[in-house]
């Protein structure tokens, strides 16, 4: 697997690094709390920790209409729900896509605004923009606020590596005409990205906890 781009993990903002931390016992605590509350009031805050900051990235992808999309800057100012699939997956990935559709419908019914859906393929050689479009069309997906992204292998690797999505080819089968078809073992994950390109939540894609992700979206909306 290749990786390009610079991926600097902000350890201070990573909840996995914070486990067990205790605030320093000092007289500055009330002042710090006041500063935090003031910052929250002016900047907006959420109970959700920052898991990864993608803001420094800039990778080119193509959506289902073959339009160029710069990730993640194209979505700056939007709350993004993002999933990772490959279209040859007949079992798990369709569940993830179904869950995203259900979430999109729920969000539309609740009149949330500014939420964008993104599905990225980790099998870009087979999942070209036209294949992704056909995959989405047959499912009746509403494209207005949903992009299906395909990009180069290095760009795909860079983004998926940063957000902790792993994948590798596994079993394969030859069809009657000798064409090789392979399956991919992959992470079952979708993520929530805030308006500044920071990952704020991780969920199972195929077993999505709707209540949890809706609460987290509401938390980011405040």
């Amino acid at each position: 697997m290749q990786h390009n781009g610079t991926l600097e993990r902000k350890k201070s903002g990573d909840r996995r690094q914070q486990a067990g931390n205790r605030p320093p016992a000092s007289g500055f605590r009330p002042a710090c709390l006041l500063l935090l509350l003031t910052s929250c009031f002016y900047l907006g805050c959420s109970r959700l920790p920052v898991l990864e900051d993608l803001g420094g990235m800039s990778y080119t992808f193509y959506n289902q209409d073959s339009a160029k999309v710069s990730f993640p800057s194209a979505y700056k100012g939007k709350i993004v729900v993002m999933s990772f699939i490959y279209t040859h997956c007949p079992d798990i990935c369709p569940l993830t896509t179904n869950n995203m559709q259900h979430l999109q419908d729920t969000i539309a019914a609740d009149k949330f605004k500014g939420v964008k859906f993104v599905t990225m393929t980790f099998d870009p050689n087979r999942d070209t923009p036209s294949v992704l479009k056909a995959y989405a069309d047959i499912r009746g997906i509403k494209f207005g606020d949903w992009d299906f992204l395909s990009g180069s292998d290095p760009n795909t690797d860079s983004v998926t590596y940063a957000v902790g999505v792993r994948y590798f080819p596994n079993d394969s089968t030859y069809s009657k005409d000798g064409k090789l078809s392979y399956y991919i073992v992959h992470t079952d994950k979708c993520i929530l990205i805030d308006r500044n390109g920071r990952v704020r939540g991780e969920y199972s894609g195929s077993q999505l906890d709707f209540e949890a992700i809706l609460n987290d979206i509401k938390s980011l909306e405040r």
């Binding site: 997956c89 007949p90 079992d91 798990i92 792993r166 596994n170 079993d171 089968t173 069809s175 009657k176 005409d177 399956y183 991919i184 073992v185 992959h186 992470t187 079952d188 994950k189 195929s206």
Partner: peptide, 20 residues
């Protein structure tokens, strides 16, 4: 379909996959 095979999906350590 061009081909039909019996498959089973599996889930382990946060990864999912399938095999014939």
């Amino acid at each position: 379909a061009e081909m039909a095979q019996l498959h089973v999906s599996f889930r382990k350590d946060g990864l999912v996959g399938m095999h014939p």
